[in-house]
Computed example of a mutant assay.
Amino acid sequence: MKVLIVEDDAAIAANLYDYLEESGYEVDVASNGRTGLQMALADSWDAILLDLSLPGMDGLMLCRKLRGEARRDTPVLMLTARDALDDKLEGFVHGADDYLVKPFSLKEVGARLSALIKRYRGRVAPMDLRFADVFLNLSTMTVERAGRPVKLPPKCLQLLRVLMQSPNRMFSRAELETEVWGEELPDSDTLRAHVYTLRRALTAPGQTDLIETVHGVGYRLVGSGRNGA
């Protein structure tokens, strides 16, 4: 997942960068509003952490341009030292999705960021996932491929859920480990073993392997047979 930090305080930006990178996010930083807007429009982001008081262009103006002129719906978590209700309401009016007052806990930033991204991806309410001939019922956590029931251990189910929610997207190993195991990250061979188990369970004789290994990087779900683990 990709997160853009727009923050002019170098110490705060560095702390956020380090924490989010260790949590498996791909992170970049802009130190002023104009650069932040350019970077927000030049790439696709899963979320933006946006300081309110910025040189060049403040966070409210950036958010307004992002929403109004560029028509981007990227989740925005606004960070500010202003804690008055009117300041918070103004942030929401200009398009912020959530609001966090400084000083803040990095864990709270992580929790709010995760919740925003889940809502943005439509992952809050249970639903069915389908890709190719694979069906995953998120209510019962049961899997079928071409009508054949597929039995999976819990972590493999979670791994499949992540891959099916963004098919064709390449997930880094760190991203998948964070999504499936949370803060209790496994050793280096655990993810590989679970991908192997998932691949074998999904792929019956005559069926194509839907999991592609991007060597040295991670994995993705694809619509045709690819290379192995």
Results as ranks from 00 to 15, higher is better:
D58I: 04
R145H: 06
P154C: 02
T142F: 00
R34M: 10
G95Y: 01
V150T: 01
G24I: 04
V29H: 13
S105R: 08
R82A: 13
Y19S: 08
L85K: 12
G218W: 04
I211F: 03
R161T: 11
F171C: 03
D58G: 02
I211G: 01
W181V: 06
K107D: 13
T140S: 14
S166V: 07
A125G: 00
G206I: 05
M1G: 09
Y99S: 03
D8R: 06
D46L: 02
G59T: 02
D128T: 14
R226M: 12
L37Q: 04
F131V: 05
A125F: 09
F92C: 04
F135Q: 10
V76I: 13
A125D: 10
V124P: 00
R169V: 10
R112K: 10
G223I: 02
V124I: 15
Y219V: 09
V109W: 06
R82N: 06
P153M: 02
H94N: 12
V29Y: 07
D8H: 09
C63Q: 04
A10K: 12
S166E: 15
L16G: 05
V29K: 09
E26F: 04
L152M: 07
A14D: 15
G68Q: 11
L191T: 07
D128L: 04
A111I: 10
S44N: 12
A10W: 04
L198N: 02
L66N: 00
L163K: 03
L49C: 12
F92D: 06
L66S: 00
M170H: 07
D187G: 11
Q165L: 08
C63S: 14
D18K: 13
H215D: 10
G225R: 09
G216S: 05
V124G: 00
M141P: 01
G95D: 09
R130F: 11
A14Q: 15
V29G: 05
A229I: 14
T213S: 15
A84Y: 04
I117F: 07
T140F: 00
L157M: 12
V124A: 14
A132Y: 07
S139W: 06
S166R: 15
M39L: 15
N32M: 08
A42H: 10
R130M: 08
V195A: 08
M141K: 10
K88N: 01
R67C: 00
V214M: 11
R161L: 06
A14I: 03
L116C: 07
R67L: 02
E183Q: 10
V180R: 07
V162Y: 06
R161W: 07
T197I: 08
V180S: 07
R226I: 01
R67W: 00
D51V: 06
R220N: 12
Q38I: 05
Y219M: 11
G36A: 07
S105D: 14
R64Y: 11
L202N: 04
P126W: 06
D9P: 00
D18R: 15
D97L: 05
N15G: 13
L100T: 01
D128W: 02
E69W: 00
T213W: 13
D28C: 08
L20A: 05
M164C: 09
F171R: 03
P167E: 11
V143I: 13
D87A: 14
E175N: 02
K88M: 12
G206P: 04
M127W: 06
D8V: 03
K88Y: 01
G33L: 06
L60K: 02
V101E: 04
K65T: 05
L62A: 07
